[in-house]
């Protein structure tokens, strides 16, 4: 479980996050939603320590992560898997080397075992046999999937994914959602997903946090979201005519 206490983040004059508190439970898909520029990525980066919050604290299973120094954070970081919004694959390494990179750092596995693990992860994201391609030879959606494969290679306890579905076709998108959801339940992972995708919100949103104006504006489940009377959330989720029609039928 991850506990976020009163996180505030300011860039110069720009108050991006203004006192956000939340509990992100293990074994659940915790979704962070909100408009573009609402601070979703910033919140995610504050949680994992890539941005130091201006104020507030983050606890990983009761351990105060914010007050730790770099060395103290390393043991927790070995349990973190993260997919970045732009995939962030190492472009000097091929797909297989990218996935094996964390294994090389933190495990004593033999080369064959690491290769097996890499192949297993690639198979789960539907990229079997693409081992030797370099990031520059992949499409945007393929990069995302390799990014996911790298994030799950260590069987992380905490999984952070920033927009896993952007750039994917609807079918692959659902496949990725299902994969993340499966892993979350299988390994009791604390999964935090930043997304815009309403299919994901409705499909796997066990716990949804809606950011608006730098604050946690609404919190609930995908069942509750359809019946909420929160105006800003309704405007965000049911922005399209299609979604409004779908809501009317609910």
């Amino acid at each position: 479980m991850i506990t976020v206490k009163d996180i505030t983040k300011t860039f110069g004059e720009n108050d991006v996050l203004r006192g956000i508190s939340a509990e992100l439970k293990s074994g659940k898909n915790n979704l962070i939603i909100g408009g573009s520029g609402s601070g979703k990525t910033t919140l995610l980066k504050c949680i994992v320590g890539l941005h130091e919050p201006t104020k507030g604290q983050v606890f990983f299973d009761e351990q105060n992560f914010t007050d730790m120094n770099f060395e103290q954070r390393v043991p927790i970081r070995t349990h973190i898997g993260m997919l970045f919004q732009n995939s962030a694959l190492f472009d000097s390494m091929n797909v297989e080397e990218n996935i094996m990179f964390p294994l090389n750092l933190f495990t004593n596995m033999t080369k064959a075992e690491k290769l097996d693990r890499a192949n297993f992860c690639l198979e789960r994201v539907n990229l079997k046999g693409k081992n030797k391609l370099f990031p520059s030879e992949l499409s945007g959606g393929m990069k995302k999937r390799v990014g996911i494969a790298r994030a799950i290679s260590m069987q992380p306890k905490y999984l952070f994914v920033d927009e896993p579905n952007s750039g994917l076709d609807p079918k692959t998108s659902i496949l990725i959602d299902e994969l993340i959801s499966e892993l979350t339940q299988e390994y009791n992972t604390t999964t935090v997903i930043v997304t815009h995708d309403m299919n994901s919100v409705m499909g796997i949103g066990d716990h949804i946090i809606f950011l608006y104006n730098g604050k946690k504006w609404w919190e609930g489940t995908n069942k509750e979201i359809a019946h909420t009377d929160n105006k800003e959330l309704n405007d965000f989720v049911f922005a399209s005519k299609f979604m409004q029609a779908a809501k009317a039928k609910l």
């Binding site: 070995t78 973190i80 732009n86 962030a88 694959l89 472009d91």
Partner: peptide
């Protein structure tokens, strides 16, 4: 710029 350094840091690499 492409967040590769962030990716290293998140893995606990100095």
């Amino acid at each position: 710029v492409t967040e590769q350094i962030d990716a290293l840091e998140i893995m606990g690499v100095n």
